[in-house]
Design a binder for these strands. Structure first.
Ligand SMILES: Nc1ncnc2c1ncn2[C@H]1C[C@H](O)[C@@H](COP(=O)(O)OP(=O)(O)OP(=O)(O)O)O1
Ligand SMILES: [Mg+2]
Length: 466
DNA sequence: GGGGCTTGAAC
RNA sequence: CUUGUUCAAGCCCC
C-alpha cells in the first residue's frame, strides 16, 4: 500500500567501500528493536573521519551543496568559490580534519518570519562548513537512520509527511480518538550539547568526528557584530542539524515504544493517539517530564494539547470526526494559500491573464500535490471558484471603458444586448467577476484552455494514478 | 535506472 | 545576507 515510493534523492551516496550497495528503500526502514547494532554499524568505526574526507564522499557532498542555491556565509565565499578554494587548500583542510584540528567558522544569523507569526533565527554556516557538514551527514545518516523508530517520519530518507499523516489517520480509525499533540519550544535552539553528544557517541567511536560535531554545535552565531561560543542549540540551517535532532529525539521514540504508545513524530511535532482524554493527559504529563529531565528539552505549552484529532492540525492536515476519519486540509492552511494567491495577483497587476496563469498554475500544482491526500474535497471546489473569480476580476479590470467590456463579452459569445447591459451596469469589478455574464463568457473551460488546471481536476488525476 | 530545470509541502 | 533536511509533482535530457 505504500504508494509514495522512495524515489528521487533518497539514495544519498554512501562513500564507504562496504556500504555502497545498500538499497535506499530499506535504508530508512530498519527493523524495530534491533539488538545486533554492530552488524549495521559503519564498517570503519575507528576511522570514520577518513570516510568523511574520502574523495567519493566529498564529491557527492559538493554536488549536493551546489545543487542548493545557498548564500555566502560569514566569510562571503559563494558555493562556487568553495570549489576553487578547496582544490587549492584541500590538502591542508583534509589534514586539519584528520588531525581533529579543524575549527569551523561562526554561522551567519538571519531572521525570517514564520507563518504563524514570530521570527525564526537561521544559522547559516559558510559554504565550506556546509560542505563539510554535508560530508559528515552522508556518512552519519546510514549509521543512524536504520535504527530510528518506525514512527519517526521527519528529516528521514524514504519517509514523508504523507506517510505520517496516513499513519495518524490509521491510529484514529483504530479507535484512538484522542491525541496528545506536542511541540517543543525553539527545538533546534535548545538542543543540549552534552545530551546530544552522548547519544552520538553511542554509535560513533571516532573521537575526531565527535570533536568536530561538538565544534559545529559550539560555533558562534554572527549577528552583525561578533559571535561567542554557543552553549546550547544546533543551527537552523546546518546540513547536519536535522539528523542530530533525530538522534536526540530517538530516545523519545524508544520511550514511547517501550510504553506501547501509538504515535507519529515529525521533527519536534509528536502526536500520540490514545483512547481516552484521561490517558492522554497522563501521557502528556509524563512525557513532558521525560523530555525536560532526560533530554533537557522544553515542551511548547501554547502549541501542545490533548484534544480530539479533528480539532488539531498535523503536518498541514486535519481530519473529520467520523469513526473512520477522513483527512482534510487544515483551515489555517487554506487561509495561507488564499493569502499567497492574493499576493500573486497583487504583484502581477499589470500582467496579462495568460502570464498570470502561467505563474500561478505551477504553484497550484505543487500545492495540490501535497494536499492530494485530503478526502474532504469541498475546499478544492470552493478554492477553484474563488480563483476563477479573481481571474475574471483581473480581466474586467483590464477593460477600462464600456465599449471594451461589451466588445469582449460579445467576442465570448454573449448577445449584443446582454453584453451592453452588463458593460454599463455600473457595478464594481468584484461584483462583475462573480456575475452570470462573466461566468458564462469565461467558463471553467476557458481557463482550462489557458493552462489553468483546476484543483479538482488535478486531484481526480492524482487519484486515478493512485 | 541516472542527470537537468521548475513548483509545492512538512518541520 | 532565506538556510537546512526530507518528500513529492510537472516539464526536459541520456
Ligand atoms: N525553514 C527552516 N529551516 C531550517 N530549519 C527549520 C525550518 N523550519 C523548521 N526548522 C527546524 C528548526 C526548528 O527548531 C524545528 C521545529 O520547527 P518549529 O516547531 O516550527 O519551530 P521551533 O521549535 O524552533 O519554535 P517554536 O517554539 O515556535 O515551536 O524544525
Ligand atoms: Mg517547535
Amino acid at each position: 500500500m505504500t504508494n509514495g515510493a522512495a524515489e528521487g534523492r533518497a539514495g544519498t551516496p554512501v562513500a564507504t567501500p562496504e556500504g555502497r550497495g545498500r538499497n535506499p528503500r530499506e535504508y530508512g526502514s530498519g527493523a524495530s528493536s534491533v539488538t545486533a547494532t554492530k552488524e549495521y554499524s559503519h564498517p570503519e568505526q575507528q576511522s570514520l573521519m577518513e570516510a568523511v574526507v574520502g574523495r567519493e564522499n566529498m564529491l557527492a557532498a559538493y554536488k549536493r551543496v551546489r545543487a542548493n542555491k545557498g548564500v555566502p556565509g560569514v566569510d562571503g565565499m559563494s558555493v562556487n568559490d568553495v570549489w576553487g578554494y578547496c582544490t587549492l587548500n584541500w590538502a591542508r583542510i583534509k589534514e586539519e580534519l584528520l588531525d581533529g584540528r579543524y575549527e569551523p567558522q561562526p554561522v551567519l544569523g538571519v531572521e525570517i518570519p514564520k507563518p504563524g507569526g514570530g521570527v525564526r533565527q537561521l544559522g547559516i554556516p559558510t559554504a565550506l562548513d556546509r560542505l563539510i557538514q554535508q560530508a559528515l551527514h552522508q556518512v552519519l545518516s546510514p549509521i543512524f537512520n536504520p535504527h530510528f523508530s518506525e514512527s519517526s517520519y521527519g528529516f528521514r530518507p524514504g519517509r514523508s509527511a504523507h506517510q505520517a499523516v496516513l499513519k495518524a489517520r490509521e491510529h484514529a480509525a483504530a479507535g484512538k480518538r484522542w491525541v496528545v499533540d506536542m511541540d517543543l519550544e525553539k527545538f533546534f535552539d535548545r538542543v543540549n550539547h552534552d545530551v546530544l553528544m552522548a547519544r552520538v557517541a553511542r554509535k560513533v567511536k571516532d573521537k575526531r568526528v565527535l570533536v568536530l560535531i561538538r565544534r559545529y554545535l559550539q560555533a558562534g552565531l554572527m549577528q552583525g557584530g561578533i559571535a561567542s561560543k554557543r552553549k546550547e542549540g544546533t543551527p537552523q540551517g546546518g546540513p547536519l542539524s536535522p539528523l542530530l535532532s533525530n538522534i536526540l529525539l530517538d530516545d523519545l521514540d524508544k520511550e514511547l515504544e517501550r510504553r506501547g504508545h501509538a504515535f507519529c513524530r515529525y521533527a519536534d511535532d509528536c502526536n500520540i493517539y490514545v483512547q481516552t482524554k484521561r490517558s492522554g493527559e497522563r501521557a502528556m504529563a509524563s512525557i513532558t517530564r521525560f523530555l525536560t529531565e532526560r533530554l533537557k528539552l522544553r515542551v511548547n505549552a501554547d502549541k501542545s494539547a490533548v484534544d480530539r484529532p479533528w480539532k488539531r492540525k498535523f503536518l498541514g492536515y486535519s481530519m473529520t470526526w467520523h469513526t473512520q476519519p477522513r483527512l482534510k486540509v487544515a483551515p489555517s492552511v487554506v487561509k495561507r494559500l488564499k493569502q499567497a494567491v492574493r499576493e500573486e495577483f497583487r504583484r502581477g497587476r499589470g500582467r496579462s491573464l495568460k502570464k498570470t496563469i502561467d505563474t500561478l498554475a505551477p504553484k497550484l500544482r505543487g500545492w495540490m500535490n501535497y494536499f492530494k491526500l485530503a478526502e474532504v474535497k469541498g475546499v478544492f471546489e470552493e478554492l477553484d471558484m474563488w480563483i476563477r473569480r479573481r481571474l475574471r476580476n483581473i480581466l474586467w479590470r483590464h477593460w477600462k471603458r464600456p465599449y471594451a467590456r461589451a466588445r469582449n463579452l460579445i467576442r465570448r459569445g454573449l448577445t449584443e444586448e446582454r453584453a451592453w447591459k452588463s458593460a454599463i451596469n455600473g457595478r464594481g469589478p468584484w461584483w462583475n467577476s462573480g456575475a452570470s455574464h462573466m461566468n458564462q463568457a469565461f467558463p471553467k473551460k476557458y481557463f482550462d484552455s489557458l493552462g489553468l488546471v483546476s484543483l479538482q481536476d488535478q486531484l481526480r488525476k492524482a487519484q486515478s494514478v493512485r
